[in-house]
Design a protein around this nucleic acid. Structure first.
Length: 133
DNA sequence: ATGTTGACGGTTG
DNA sequence: TCAACCGCCAACA
């Protein structure tokens, strides 16, 4: 049962998220900026949310979605706190430190991100036509 | 085509 | 500081 592939912007987001190294985090807004689409931070979050509908879709399992937090380093999954605790657990397994309960210590764990030409290469590698620029 | 929906982020009071 | 607003914009129904 092949499933309809995600929309273009979501695929761009996933291609970037794959590149976040273990033990590092970045924010929804910074991913949007890397994609040359500042202001689309909410859409980045929505792309993460959409992953739970693809738990059985090979190619989208294993995306390190837990390494994406808000610009303050906080875990902001919506719903009853289970999702937040789960994300915190996944990060702790990578020795990410929290200054408070669910507040990531960004000083030591913020991902440097990709340069524009590196983003291009990543999108190219993912076979995404550079439609969105 | 049109209205709704947010795992955001900045501004305000 | 902190909470409440509000602009943002791709997906989706």
């Amino acid at each position: 049962m092949t499933r309809k592939p995600p929309a273009p912007f979501y695929r761009q987001v996933y291609a970037i998220v794959w590149k976040i190294p273990p033990g590092k985090v970045t924010s929804y807004g910074r991913i949007a900026e890397m994609l040359n689409n500042p202001g689309a931070a909410r859409q980045v979050g929505y792309a993460m949310s959409a992953l739970k509908n693809r738990a059985d879709d090979p190619g989208y399992v294993g995306i390190p979605w837990h390494r994406v937090v808000n610009h303050q380093g906080q875990i902001v999954i919506k719903g009853s706190g289970e999702g937040r605790l789960y994300q915190a657990e996944l990060l702790r397994e990578e020795s990410v430190e929290f200054s408070k309960d669910l507040q990531v210590n960004l000083d030591g764990h913020l991902w440097e991100g990709l340069l524009p030409h590196e983003v291009q290469a990543v999108l190219e590698e993912a076979g995404i036509n550079p439609k969105y620029e």
